[in-house]
Simulated scan of single mutants.
Amino acid sequence: MSFLSDETARALAELVALDALHGDVTGAGRADDETDASPLERLRGIRALVAALEADPASIASVRDALGAGRTWSQIADAAGLSPNAAKYRWAGDDDEIAARHEASRKRKRDRPSSAPTELPGLSVAEAAAKLGVTPQAIYQRVTRGLLRAETVELPDGRKYKRVFPDEASAG
């Protein structure tokens, strides 16, 4: 019996069939257009297998078996191509704890935009540093010493940004 779920095994078999079809070549190493899988079919097959593998319970079962056999999170992370913290985040705890952690992460991603707003006043610390030809740390030091004015701007969604006003005298 396979350790992969039926859905993952089916996606794998379909991708292997596409690979075999693509591997059938005629003539001087050129694929026969009538039998060759299209690039989009191949891409769909690859993505279907990736999605099936991500959802497959075989991963968590393997992690739990490895932990039961005395393997460390570092070893598990190395096998999965992750950092130990990422592996623990993904697989530590029981099914309910994992599901709750992943749902909280999805909720944060839905609730927060993925890019910084562009309509903020002043300059970012990095922009101010580039404009003045210094490091970001030097900007923070100048703000602390009162040589530059800076404000923390808070958006309605709770994100905060430090904004620097290098063309204005310090208000402090």
Rank of each mutant, 00 (worst) to 15 (best):
L82D: 06
G70S: 05
A104M: 09
A126H: 08
G122F: 12
D78N: 13
G133Y: 07
A87E: 01
K109L: 15
A100N: 04
T118K: 15
A104T: 06
Q75K: 08
S105D: 10
T135Q: 08
A79K: 08
E119W: 13
A79E: 09
A126I: 08
A99N: 00
T72V: 00
W73Y: 02
P113I: 13
S74D: 15
R112E: 09
T135I: 01
A130E: 15
D111V: 08
E127R: 07
R90P: 00
A130Q: 14
K131D: 12
R112M: 13
A104R: 12
Q75Y: 01
A99Y: 01
G68I: 00
P84T: 05
R108Q: 11
T135G: 02
S83H: 05
A87L: 02
Y89F: 13
I98R: 13
V125Y: 02
R101K: 12
P117C: 13
W91F: 12
A77G: 07
A87N: 07
P121H: 07
V134Q: 01
A116M: 12
R71M: 06
T118S: 13
K109R: 15
A69H: 12
K88V: 02
D95Y: 01
S124N: 03
E127K: 10
E97T: 10
S115F: 14
A80E: 08
R106T: 11
A69S: 12
A80F: 13
